[in-house]
């Protein structure tokens, strides 16, 4: 464990909690892409199947359980409890355009052609593009609630910190995983436009509104 991975995980946890609290407190999922949340739930499900088969540490197990529970709770709130506030008209990204290439890539480019390995690879590739429906929805509505931008900021920050974690692990532990690094780079690059808007607008107290 290193400081980048720890702060990365805490940033990820913060994002997940912020989103859950936003929906719960405001009793509304306006501006939130349910499709992205379903993809994240799928990412955690396919990545944490080893939850019961291999014990790495209490931290690892506890965080995985929290991530999975929060992901499904968020999906339930969006499509169940507060579905009346779900903005389906703007959450129209065709996720099959993500799932099909990700499945093909996971089958073609992986470290081992074994079920657990392919599922892990699928989850890594899927996570790198899972935010696209959310970013697409914001571009369609032309704006985002400030709390939603904080959610996105911490979510984008987490994988950015993981990139530093991988540099650290390569340098100090001689450890390197090209699949995770490339997918992490793609994931972080997708946030660059948002990071720019967040830093130049939201941090200056303005509302995030895209030039329509």
């Amino acid at each position: 464990m290193n400081i980048f991975r720890l702060t990365g995980d805490l940033s990820h946890l913060a994002a997940i909690i912020i989103l859950l609290l936003k929906i719960w407190k405001t009793r509304s999922c306006a501006g939130i892409s349910g499709k992205s949340q379903i993809l994240f739930a799928l990412v955690f499900t396919t990545r944490y199947l080893d939850l019961f088969s291999s014990f790495i540490s209490l931290y690892n197990t506890v965080m995985k359980v929290i991530y999975i529970m929060c992901a499904y709770a968020t999906v339930y709130l969006i499509y169940g409890k507060f579905k009346a506030t779900y903005d389906g008209n703007h959450d129209t990204f065709r996720v099959e355009f993500l799932l099909i290439p990700v499945v093909l890539l996971a089958v073609l480019i992986n470290h081992a052609f074994a079920p657990m390995e392919i599922l892990w690879t699928f989850s890594i590739y899927l996570e790198s593009v899972a935010i696209l429906p959310q970013l697409f929805m914001i571009s369609k509505t032309g704006e985002a609630e400030t709390i939603t931008t904080h959610y996105l900021f911490f979510l984008g920050l987490y994988r950015t910190l993981y990139l530093f974690n991988w540099i650290w692990r390569f340098y100090f532990e001689g450890f390197f995983d090209l699949i995770a690094v490339v997918a992490g780079l793609v994931q972080t690059i997708l946030y660059c436009d948002f990071f720019y808007l967040y830093i130049t607008k939201v941090l200056k107290g303005k509302k995030l509104s895209l030039p329509a």
Binding site: D50, S57, K64, Y162, E173, F175, F176, A180
Partner: peptide
């Protein structure tokens, strides 16, 4: 072996 080390990440 590098693979299993990654698996300690979330």
């Amino acid at each position: 072996q590098g693979r299993t080390k990654l698996k300690d990440e979330l």
